[in-house]
Amino acid sequence: MNIFRMAGDVAHIVSIIILLHSIETTQSVNGLSLKTQVLYTIVFISRYLDLFYRYISLYNSFMKVFYISSSIYTVYLIANKYNKSIKEHVDNFEVKYLLGPSFILGFLFNYGFTLPEILWSFSLWLEAVAILPQLFMLQKTGEAEVLTTHYIFALGLYRALYIPNWFYRYFAEDKFDKLAVLTGIIQTVIYSDFFYIYYKSAFKGKKFKLP
């Protein structure tokens, strides 16, 4: 495993820890999109089905279990435990416009016309756009808690770091996963606007504000 992949996975774990930590310390899920978290749960379950029939490494299995369980737990926290602070009218992105096209793209572009491969591709497309309800919500409220912005930043950083990892693997291992690269680039582009605003507010010590 190369340094970019390792750093990407660390950023992903850090993002989940920030998310859970901020929910537990503030006892609130204010500003968090339940829809985005449900989409991530769908992403992880559809992508990591191979957990049951293919062993890659202990690291790989452990991380898959961690992502599936932490995403289900997050959905539980938002939907059940702290649901009093949900403002449903703010989190009103139409997720069918993300789920439908992701499934069609997974159906059209895959490495084999089998259910696991279609679901795997679907999960990549869906992951690329799953943050949109959260960003949409941020844009509507205009402001975000510092921890929420750190969470989104770490999450965006994860896929961004996978891009140099794919370059590395292309040259060092002669391995190239065109679907992962394409969806990873789309995902990073979706975050790019956020990265820029985050960069400006984080380095000037200002409260995070979207224009």
């Binding site: 992949r5 996975d9 992903h12 992508r47 191979d50 890659i56 490494s57 790989n60 991380m63 898959k64 992502y67 490495y111 084999g112 491969e117 795997w120 996978y162 990892n165 292309y170 002669d174 391995k175 190239f176 996963d177 065109k178 992962a180």
Partner: peptide
Amino acid sequence: ARQATEHDEL
């Protein structure tokens, strides 16, 4: 380059 169908990434 080999096509990556092992899906060893997360």
